[in-house]
Simulated assay, not measured.
Amino acid sequence: MTYFRWALGRLGVAALTLFGVSLLIFAAVRAMPGSYSDLVLGPLATDADKAAAATRYGLDGSLPEQYAHWLLNAARGDFGISMASQTPVATEFADRLPATVTLTVLALAVTVLIGVPLGVLTGIRGAGGGRTGRVLGSLGLSLPEFVVGSLVVFVFTRYGLGLTVGGYVPWDQGPLRSVLSLALPAAVLAVFCTAAVARTTRDAVLGVLVEPHVGAALARGESAAHIVRHHVLRNAAIPVLTLLATLSAYLLGGAVIVERLFNTPGLGSFLVDGLDRRDYAIVQAGVLLAATVFIAVNVLVDIVCGVIDPRISTRAGRSTT
């Protein structure tokens, strides 16, 4: 019962957080210098033209009225009309979301398959071993994405090596072709993510290995593999899951530099273009979507962590009583 009360509390906090984020998004977009009429209609636009544009896009009401109208429509899945393309924002997002989701899934898959085993290996070896893994992890954390991406673009453009640069294939033209077209940008994104997960996993494993229950398992004669599977991995999973939640939200928000380098029609570069044009509908919907994903993923990770370690929900329940 304590766990379910704690989980419901986390959902309530998430809903309040999302409401606060929506307020900040709306206020920040309205506070940006310049406006749609200044950038798109041009300096020669008359007051009548500006008033007509404001009426058409619902910008002529008071700020509370605009916010309430936008929030209610967004809750129904209606994010308005793009001021630049004159098409529904939901349609624009639906066209670009498959590329971003595929890119995120590929990058996270590489991160988990390489980063977690590498972190466990270097953690088990301790301070006296795993130097290669630590060096590679530090290198991956220190290299900017535009450096790695530019190097990959040069190498695969110059020598081919079986993969093309910038030739994104939509999912409906073949799932395998779509995945292969995003393999290079996903690998570039995975460099930093893998290094971060490996470092976090290593630190978590080192922290668990000094716990008394691990020493007791060694004293009972349990094998090293059994100790790692049944004692180390479960206790070290919580910080790793928390980091993966943050990375997944970051990737779904769109890695703009990588999308630009590889000419990937994802959400990140689309939001930057909307910001440049002061396209309120696109910016508000994009940031709200990224915030929703971030909050939802973190709530899911919190609930999973409460299942892995019941002490989390128990301590939280006691602190609220």
Rank of each mutant, 00 (worst) to 15 (best):
V307M: 13
E259T: 00
A225S: 12
V116K: 03
A99S: 09
D203Q: 08
R158P: 00
T2N: 11
I295P: 00
R158Y: 13
L233M: 10
S142M: 12
A204C: 03
L176G: 06
F4S: 13
F192Y: 15
T246D: 03
P64R: 03
P117S: 01
L218N: 13
S269C: 01
E259D: 04
F4G: 15
R220T: 11
V208D: 01
L251R: 01
S178F: 00
V240K: 05
G42L: 04
R311P: 04
L261H: 03
C305D: 11
R76H: 14
D60G: 12
V21G: 02
A186D: 07
S22C: 05
V188F: 02
V179M: 14
L141T: 01
D38H: 14
R318K: 03
L59M: 13
S269Q: 09
G253S: 07
L288E: 00
G253M: 14
D95W: 11
L244M: 12
T132Y: 07
V197C: 00
K50H: 09
V101F: 07
A187M: 09
I227A: 05
G207Q: 04
R278C: 06
D302V: 07
V240F: 14
A48R: 14
A216K: 09
S223C: 06
I308G: 02
R30K: 04
V110N: 00
D279T: 08
V283L: 00
R96M: 09
V179A: 14
L121S: 13
D78H: 05
G129H: 12
Y57G: 12
F294K: 01
R56E: 15
V155E: 13
V153P: 13
L16F: 07
G80R: 11
L244G: 12
V169N: 11
P88E: 06
L184C: 09
M1W: 03
R311D: 01
L267M: 12
T132A: 12
S223W: 11
T164A: 03
S85D: 11
V179G: 10
V297S: 05
T321V: 11
L271A: 00
A27E: 01
T132N: 03
A51G: 04
A107W: 08
V89I: 14
R131H: 11
V287K: 07
G274R: 00
R199S: 10
L243E: 06
D273W: 13
L121F: 06
V116G: 08
V101G: 08
P170W: 01
L8M: 13
V112H: 09
R278Q: 08
V272Q: 12
L97A: 14
L180M: 09
S269L: 04
A94Y: 07
L184K: 05
V299Q: 09
H213A: 06
A48P: 02
V232N: 10
T87C: 07
V208A: 09
R30D: 13
P43I: 03
V197F: 00
R134M: 11
P43S: 11
Q173T: 02
Q86D: 15
I25K: 04
A90F: 05
I114A: 00
L16T: 05
